[in-house]
Structure formats: structure tokens, C-alpha cells
């Protein structure tokens, strides 16, 4: 069986490898499809539903990140309905938690924020929930801020599939679901965390971040000049030269 197949994306005929998902096929032909929970190198879960596309002959919208591309498939990635549904999906995420971009550690480095602009979300039509959520600073190097979490579970998957530490899991159910460290332990006294920081790298938003990089945490090295001066013996006794 030839491993190269051809599918039609938004009317244009493109090449793809057999076994690729529609999302991968689109990406390799730089056709834009949004996707928050999708991450190269991790298993696909089809949770954020942003990458949903229309496939001719199928009356249901299909998640492109989990649906294998088949030869002769005709895929539509942009339509009024899809754009409206994606905007609604993003707005639901914004309304669900406390996404205060202005003071977020990941301001301007957040996939949620970027998709909002790209898909034309200028405001959120749903009522904000303002949930009371925890910020766990107990880890010496990292911090997890549940206010910014979109439950894409990239952190859970990278910790299980790549690092193999199984620190993170999704606890609770429904709207009460939240990322939890082991038996709901503080991250600082986790038993199995290897401090590798992979979860921080894959997190699309400001939920997982490295300490010390937020503007507010900036500590200027005030002792620098004095130390150099003493080494060079050019310490100035104070007063005009």
C-alpha cells in the first residue's frame, strides 16, 4: 500500500502520509487548524475540541487531532459555523477560570491568548464564574496556578508518557475537575516528582511557570558594583571624584 495519500483541505489537493491524522496532514501543508490540547510527541486526547473540522460525507464534526487522514478525504477547516463554535469554545475557557491576562506570568506567551486574537474573540459573552482556586508555590523552582489552567492535560501526559513519574492527574469530575499532584499533595513535597520541568515547558498558558521569571519577582543584583570595585581596588570613598 503506498504510504503517500492525497486529501483535499479547503478545496486544495495536498499530500500526506498514511497514518497521519488530519491535523498532522494540515500542519505539514501549513494549513492552520487551532489546537490547544494537541502537542507533538504526546498522545492525543481530543479534549479542547478546537481542532474540530467538517469532513464531507460525515454528518458529525470530527476532531482532526485523533481522526486518521484517509485517501480522497475532503476536509473543511474554515467555515462560519466552525469559527463560531471555536470562538464559543475559547470564550467558555475564559469564563471558566480567572484568566487575568494583564498580570499573568505568560502575558503575550500564551496559546489561549493568541488563539483568542487570531479567531477574533474580543469579549466573552458568558458570565464569568470567578472560581476560588489555589496557587501552589510549594515547589522550590516551579509554581502551578489553577486560575490559568484550561485542563488540556498536556502536563499529565508528559509526566506519565515521557518522564514516567505519574505526578500529575485530573482529580474530581465535571466543572470541579482540576489538576492534582499525587494524593492531592502540595507539589513541594511530592514523592515522585523528578523536578524535570517538562510539564512547565508543555503548558500552553500561565498555569505552570518557572519561578523567578515573572516581572514582579525580579531581583536586581545591587551588590555587583561594590564587589567589582573592591576587586579592582578602585573603590571610591564616596563624594565627588
Amino acid at each position: 500500500m503506498p504510504n503517500r495519500i492525497s486529501i483535499r483541505i479547503d478545496g486544495e489537493l495536498v499530500q500526506a502520509e498514511r497514518g497521519q491524522t488530519i491535523f498532522e496532514a494540515a500542519q505539514s501543508n501549513n494549513k492552520f487548524i487551532p489546537g490547544l490540547c494537541q502537542f507533538k510527541g504526546l498522545s492525543t486526547v481530543g479534549a479542547c475540541r478546537l481542532c474540530v473540522v467538517e469532513v464531507q460525507g460525515v454528518n458529525r464534526l470530527l476532531p482532526s487531532c485523533t481522526t486518521p487522514a484517509q485517501d480522497g478525504m475532503a476536509v473543511i477547516t474554515k467555515s462560519a459555523r466552525l469559527n463560531d463554535y471555536r470562538r464559543q469554545s475559547l470564550e467558555l475557557l475564559f469564563a471558566e477560570k480567572n484568566h487575568v491576562c494583564a498580570v499573568c506570568v505568560s502575558n503575550n506567551h500564551c496559546e489561549l491568548q493568541a488563539y483568542a486574537q487570531r479567531l477574533g474573540v474580543t469579549n466573552v459573552r458568558y458570565a464569568y464564574r470567578y472560581p476560588k482556586l489555589h496557587v501552589d508555590m510549594s515547589h522550590p523552582r516551579f509554581v502551578i496556578d489553577h486560575n490559568r489552567c484550561v485542563l488540556c492535560t498536556r502536563c499529565v501526559r508528559v509526566c506519565n508518557e515521557v518522564e514516567g513519574a505519574y505526578v500529575w492527574g485530573v482529580a474530581g469530575r465535571g466543572i470541579g475537575s482540576r489538576i492534582a499532584c499525587e494524593m492531592d499533595r502540595a507539589w513541594g513535597n511530592s514523592a515522585s516528582c523528578t523536578n524535570c520541568g517538562k510539564c512547565v515547558q508543555v503548558c500552553p498558558t500561565g498555569a505552570l511557570a518557572e519561578k523567578g521569571f515573572a516581572a514582579e519577582e525580579m531581583v536586581k543584583r545591587q551588590d555587583l558594583v561594590e564587589r567589582l570595585a573592591t576587586i579592582r581596588g578602585t573603590m571610591n570613598p564616596g563624594g565627588p571624584r
Partner: peptide, 20 residues
């Protein structure tokens, strides 16, 4: 805790199941 250590099932998964 004992169940996790004894069976090798990660603590996070046990906690997920218990709260689900």
C-alpha cells in the same frame, strides 16, 4: 497510600478514581 505502594498503581490515578 499502602494500596498504591503495594500494587504499583500511581497515587495520582488512585486519587483520580476516588474523586471521580
Amino acid at each position: 497510600d499502602y494500596l498504591a505502594r503495594r500494587t504499583g498503581i500511581p497515587e495520582s490515578r488512585i486519587y483520580n478514581v476516588v474523586t471521580f
